[in-house]
């Protein structure tokens, strides 16, 4: 196991490097930050000065070499717009995104597995249909629509929670609730589907035919076999959350990495974009390693 993690870490480092190169050059295809930082009637000389101050006037390959060199010294460069180290900006935002993602995913996993499994046991029944329809409607409703309606209803109408911002735990209720809906809908469907497949596996059929009344036992065994695709989908959704919940953050004024990312991309703040992507990537790589470990634990045959 340790060896596998070691190998994965090295491989992930290579991926990170590839990602960095890709982002560095692709983002620089998208235009000149100087014209966005400066007002529209800025002189050419001012633009030139801005580029020179941030090394944007150098040949691309030299910019890249400098960036890599600084990176080797753990320097992610300076934000072009905020005049402070890019990595500080990103980590501050991450300190908000991480708890948001973890709490949401925790809630999603527990509720989806329980409800999805129950639906599978009751396939075709009322409860199954109810869970399917409710979760699907939730998962396919546009989130900014839900978010704004939620503010109108729960903050203005009922006055239960603040409209937006961060501060008290109450401020987290609406963002988490809105974020929860879509991954929940997806995961519950996949849990249900996998459980159905697993339930029709020979050993479960045999057990049921023999009249094993120990439902919990069946539940646990089936769950174990049905978990592989579930974990994959959970991973996919968690990765999306780790990338920041752009819409929810934008609407609720939540200072997470999603809002930072879209702002930096639109403003061509290359260093912040790069730092944000690399920090996110590290989080996602760690999560993927955890997922692969989970695969191995659930199904020993996969273990190499």
């Amino acid at each position: 196991m340790t060896k596998m993690i070691g190998q994965r870490a090295i491989a992930s480092l290579l991926s990170l490097l590839g990602l960095m190169v890709l982002v560095f050059f692709l983002s620089r295809l998208t235009g000149d930050p100087a014209v966005l930082f400066l007002p529209i009637d800025a002189t050419e000389e001012m633009k030139q000065q801005f580029r020179a101050l941030h090394g944007l006037d150098l040949p691309l390959i030299e910019q890249f070499a400098r960036y890599v060199w600084d990176l080797l010294h753990f320097d992610f460069g300076e934000s072009l717009r905020k005049a402070r180290p890019a990595i500080d900006v990103v980590l501050e935002a991450y300190a908000w995104t991480l708890p948001l993602a973890l709490i949401t995913m925790g809630l999603v996993i527990t509720t989806a597995i329980v409800l999805g499994s129950l639906a599978a046991f009751n396939v075709g029944g009322f409860f199954d249909r109810l869970v399917s329809i409710v979760s699907l409607v939730g998962a396919s409703a546009p989130d900014f629509w839900i978010a704004i309606v939620a503010i109108v209803v729960f903050s203005i109408g009922l006055g239960w929670v603040p409209t937006s911002g961060v501060g008290t735990p109450l401020h987290w209720v609406l963002p988490i609730a809105v974020l929860f809906i879509r991954p929940f809908g997806l995961v519950v469907q996949v849990v249900r589907g996998s459980m159905l497949s697993a339930l029709s596996a020979p050993f479960v059929k045999t057990a049921r035919a023999k009249g094993v009344k120990n439902l919990p036992l069946i539940f646990v065994h089936t769950l174990r076999n049905g978990m592989l695709p579930v974990i994959t989908v959970i991973g996919d959704q968690a990765a999306a959350l780790l990338n920041g919940a752009v819409i929810v953050e934008t609407i609720f004024g939540f200072p997470g990495v999603g809002k930072l990312m879209i702002d930096s991309i639109l403003q061509r703040d290359f260093n912040v974009v790069l730092a944000a992507i690399m920090v996110t990537a590290v989080a996602i790589f760690i999560m993927n390693i955890l997922i692969d470990i989970a695969y191995g634990l659930l199904d020993p045959r996969i273990r190499h």
Partner: peptide, 26 residues
């Protein structure tokens, strides 16, 4: 398998917003 999976890691952590802006701009 390793090569493909690490490639997937790269794509997974490449934000769709940046892809969108790059593609739209270019």
């Amino acid at each position: 398998s390793q090569v493909i999976m690490r490639l997937a890691d790269v794509i997974m952590s490449f934000p769709s917003l940046l892809i969108a802006v790059v593609v739209l701009y270019v």
